[in-house]
Amino acid sequence: MAAAAIPKVAAQFKKIAPMANRVLIKKADPVTQTKGGIVLPDQTKTRIHRGIVMAVGPGARNDSGEQIPVQVKPGDEVLLPDYGAAKVELDKDEVYFIYRETDILAKINE
């Protein structure tokens, strides 16, 4: 999904607002073919480790009650673990996932 499409899609997420340090993510489409033209088997298509941040919560609170802001923002591309997300279906076609910010492995800076 292009970064330019993020503001249009972000309006849809006013219905869902992640709480605390939660992040709403749209997983990237699985790669079906390598750059060299090799078609990948279905087993490799099921594991998607990249996603685009669609919405973020306000952040968690520390022991003294101060709010710690989330380190990612809508439009960021991130690396994700295999497990640990809650699946959310907003439309029949659109599936999103909610992760804790601490579960996100890395932010991709390209």
Score class of each variant (00 low, 15 high):
residue 76 D to K: 03
residue 36 G to M: 12
residue 66 E to V: 09
residue 46 T to Q: 14
residue 38 I to G: 08
residue 41 P to Y: 14
residue 52 I to N: 10
residue 81 P to R: 01
residue 82 D to A: 10
residue 52 I to K: 07
residue 60 A to W: 06
residue 42 D to R: 15
residue 89 E to Y: 01
residue 76 D to E: 08
residue 76 D to T: 03
residue 55 A to V: 06
residue 71 Q to P: 01
residue 66 E to I: 06
residue 59 G to Y: 09
residue 84 G to I: 00
residue 68 I to S: 02
residue 87 K to E: 13
residue 49 H to R: 14
residue 67 Q to F: 06
residue 36 G to K: 13
residue 84 G to F: 03
residue 74 P to S: 07
residue 60 A to T: 10
residue 45 K to G: 07
residue 49 H to M: 11
residue 65 G to Q: 03
residue 65 G to H: 05
residue 58 P to W: 08
residue 81 P to H: 01
residue 58 P to T: 10
residue 70 V to C: 10
residue 73 K to E: 12
residue 72 V to D: 00
residue 66 E to A: 14
residue 47 R to L: 15
residue 60 A to F: 11
residue 47 R to T: 12
residue 46 T to P: 00
residue 63 D to A: 13
residue 47 R to M: 13
residue 65 G to C: 05
residue 37 G to N: 08
residue 68 I to L: 13
residue 46 T to N: 15
residue 72 V to Q: 00
residue 68 I to T: 10
residue 85 A to S: 09
residue 74 P to D: 04
residue 67 Q to P: 02
residue 57 G to N: 04
residue 76 D to G: 02
residue 71 Q to F: 12
residue 69 P to C: 12
residue 44 T to Y: 15
residue 88 V to Q: 03
residue 61 R to E: 13
residue 70 V to T: 12
residue 76 D to C: 06
residue 43 Q to L: 14
residue 41 P to W: 12
residue 63 D to H: 11
residue 42 D to Q: 15
residue 50 R to N: 09
residue 37 G to I: 10
residue 86 A to F: 02
residue 63 D to R: 11
residue 51 G to L: 00
residue 79 L to T: 04
residue 36 G to A: 13
residue 86 A to E: 10
residue 81 P to E: 06
residue 41 P to C: 11
residue 81 P to D: 05
residue 85 A to K: 04
residue 72 V to H: 00
residue 62 N to G: 06
residue 42 D to S: 11
residue 76 D to W: 01
residue 86 A to T: 05
residue 43 Q to S: 15
residue 74 P to G: 04
residue 88 V to C: 00
residue 78 V to L: 02
residue 79 L to Q: 08
residue 58 P to A: 14
residue 80 L to P: 02
residue 75 G to M: 05
residue 71 Q to W: 14
residue 59 G to W: 06
residue 36 G to L: 12
residue 39 V to S: 10
residue 83 Y to K: 13
residue 57 G to P: 05
residue 78 V to E: 01
residue 71 Q to S: 12
residue 77 E to F: 07
residue 65 G to V: 00
residue 54 M to Y: 03
residue 47 R to D: 14
residue 79 L to N: 03
residue 55 A to E: 05
residue 74 P to H: 09
residue 88 V to F: 03
residue 83 Y to V: 05
residue 80 L to C: 02
residue 75 G to T: 09
residue 83 Y to C: 09
residue 68 I to Y: 02
residue 46 T to C: 11
residue 82 D to P: 07
residue 67 Q to W: 07
residue 64 S to W: 06
residue 89 E to I: 05
residue 65 G to D: 04
residue 74 P to I: 09
residue 55 A to L: 04
residue 75 G to D: 06
residue 86 A to K: 07
residue 44 T to W: 13
residue 74 P to Q: 03
residue 62 N to K: 06
residue 48 I to Q: 15
residue 77 E to A: 05
residue 50 R to F: 11
residue 54 M to P: 03
residue 41 P to K: 11
residue 45 K to Q: 13
residue 47 R to H: 11
residue 53 V to P: 09
residue 73 K to D: 09
residue 83 Y to G: 03
residue 80 L to W: 00
residue 68 I to E: 11
residue 86 A to Y: 02
residue 37 G to C: 08
residue 62 N to R: 06
residue 43 Q to F: 14
residue 84 G to R: 01
